[in-house]
Design a protein around this nucleic acid. Structure first.
Lengths: 363, 363
DNA sequence: TGTTAGCACTCAGGCAAAGGGAGTGCTAAC
DNA sequence: GTTAGCACTCCCTTTGCCTGAGTGCTAACA
């Protein structure tokens, strides 16, 4: 269920080997420290650890181990007389080697499910709702990357003449998402002519993916047969225009206010930076796109995302799919100090649920 | 160009009368104080005023006048040994009686215009762009309330059978906005049957406003003639469902990060509150709706909006229209300490421009 | 040899006191 | 009616002190 294969190789080969150096006691202390820190958001000291965990050793021993862990880069001290906090490397080791991901309880599963109606939900509604549920259950911010237009299956096109020379094109995909574009034509076309064009296009293109549609249009244009009718030639030219531009990936951000309640965002500058990151969605899209290529739950910790605006944040994502394969990504963004053992199954379960809900669209 | 008629009666009858009590000198001092405060965001003292404005009086005199202004409620002191800041009543008097609204320069007009393409912009694109332009030119946050579905003119309907019993309905308005809804039917309909239905509905309903459409459907259902065909009866029942639910008013918020750069939002709590207000759009919609009923530029100062989350903020709005009349509202939200003389013409000009751009949709 | 107790040391954060600065209101003189 | 002068207020910053939590080191112990 949890894989970080896609990225752990990339970022953590070295980490893993160092991980081998850790004996059982060091691991348990690191785990205790990280879990205490996740709960308290404060640096954790040696005494706190011995008090709250039955490790069978004294604070002094813990201090020695912590000194080693610090040297190895798993934890660090914000200042001399403070406890330790995990580094990104520490979190990565924790997630890869120490974390026990629980199964979501039946009750939690139901709590998630009950937000979705079974009938009459459009794709967009399902995705938006998924974002909201993710944010409200996790108490962080929900992110959902909608399916790319390019990867959807063409179902239907419709031209509507709005006024002289202005035509509205409506594109429907098989899953029922709708896109519309406005075209200004040199010469006016009557609605009847437009209908002829749509009939032709629907006949020719239905059932193809948008990528295939593009190829098919070019092919049709190349073949002479289209030339017999200037109207059809026009239709092809027009539709080439319509299908060529890729709409920027759309991302739904839900519950952004949640994340700002976290103590790490008491700092105004950080809050603003993250806020700007949310506003400028393109980089988020790129990041989510990246995780779409991998199976299972992906975790980006802080700078691993190569996205400095979300410094101090982690991203837990999973991709969702329909019968055609993976079509989008959803997940949660929150502070790196995040209870991964809770968030991971929530994201995982939501992705599965969304996949199930969208699957039926392709009967 | 600037009217506050719709609201000044409501809120400022009393203010205006008190305004009469103010002699020329008091007015000039109040004006100077407000303008200094708008620039500095700090309480303004008597010496600062005499230093920066040629009033021909000493600080002591200014102090006396300020004491009077305070008693009348136009200004207040945050604490004993600070300068004064304008109250909401002060701002209101300033806007109603002292403010000189400049015309937008040719250069500024062009700066705004160049953000819009002249051709092929859909309504939604025009509105989003307007929000962005408003925010980037004013350095505050742009708000645009999209036209209500109810007030638009029906142009076209289309049913697309997605799978057994699942039908996608696409509604197009005359201005080219598209809405789509998913319907689950008890019994399966063939695409051919759906086409019959759309033909009938398009013939019957095109050109009516949505409100009229609703009435017409009920009327058709009441008349026996529809009963002759069970298919048409079904069509009417289906479309009644489609048209009855009012989509919540849609509002575009652009450049929310801008407003958080203002010094008044250095306070974390306030920032969060405003942020939550942005996230929960329904009340913003209500507020913008309110101003839609009035002509010209409207200004809501702080609590006048009866919307405590945006305490300390002002809203400068103007409604835009097409040939059918007023259809929506746009504006800027920023701190009450806002250079109104700049913002007002920006909002005014944008509203006119948007109206002009949308007008062509109704040829 | 690994573990632990003890101890000196460090440093952030809270609190109170002190000082400076900006501004006020009042009074008396112009 | 206006102004200069002055005592007063209060915020804000700086300073110093103290406390508590935590560390690293060392020496003793098992």
């Amino acid at each position: 269920m949890l894989t970080t294969a896609g990225f752990s190789g990339l970022f953590f080969g070295a980490t893993f080997m160092l991980g081998e150096e850790l004996n059982e006691r060091s691991r348990r202390i690191l785990e205790a420290l990280i879990e205490d820190h996740i709960e308290s958001a404060e640096p954790v000291g040696s005494r706190t650890i011995t008090r709250r965990h039955q490790l069978g050793v004294s604070p002094a021993t813990v201090r020695n181990v912590m000194a080693d862990l610090e040297e190895m880069g798993y934890i660090c001290a914000p200042h001399t007389s403070a406890g330790r906090i995990p580094t990104e490397k520490g979190y990565r080791f924790y997630i890869d080697s120490l974390l026990q991901v629980r199964q979501l309880s039946q009750a939690d599963q139901q709590r998630i499910e009950q937000h979705y109606r079974l009938k009459g939900m459009r794709v967009e509604e399902v995705l938006r709702e998924a974002g909201k549920v993710l944010s409200s259950i996790s108490h962080y911010t929900g992110l959902v990357l909608a399916p790319r237009f390019t990867s959807t299956v063409f179902r239907h096109i419709e031209f509507i003449r709005l006024s002289s020379g202005r035509v509205l094109a409506i594109l429907v995909t098989r899953s029922g998402t709708v896109q519309n574009r406005l075209v200004e034509l040199e010469e006016d076309l009557r609605q009847g002519e437009l209908e002829q064009m749509t009939n032709y296009l629907n006949r020719t293109l239905t059932g193809l993916t948008i990528q295939e549609v593009r190829a098919r249009i070019l092919q049709e244009m190349a073949e002479e047969k289209a030339l017999y009718s200037s109207l059809l030639t026009q239709a092809l030219q027009l539709s080439r225009q319509l299908f060529q531009d890729e709409a920027a990936g759309e991302v739904f951000i839900e519950g952004a206010a949640n994340i700002f309640e976290q103590p790490e965002f008491a700092d105004l500058e950080r809050m603003k930076r993250l806020f700007r990151a949310f506003e400028q969605k393109s980089r988020l899209v790129a990041l989510l796109d990246k995780s779409q290529q991998a199976e299972g739950v992906q975790i980006f910790i802080g700078a691993e995302s190569e996205y400095s605006e979300i410094e101090g944040c982690s991203l837990v994502t999973a991709s969702y799919s329909n019968r055609l394969g993976t079509i989008g990504t959803l997940g949660v963004i929150g502070p790196t100090r995040m209870p991964y053992s809770l968030v991971i199954p929530i994201v995982d379960y939501t992705a599965r649920l969304v996949s199930k809900l969208l699957e039926t669209d392709n009967r």
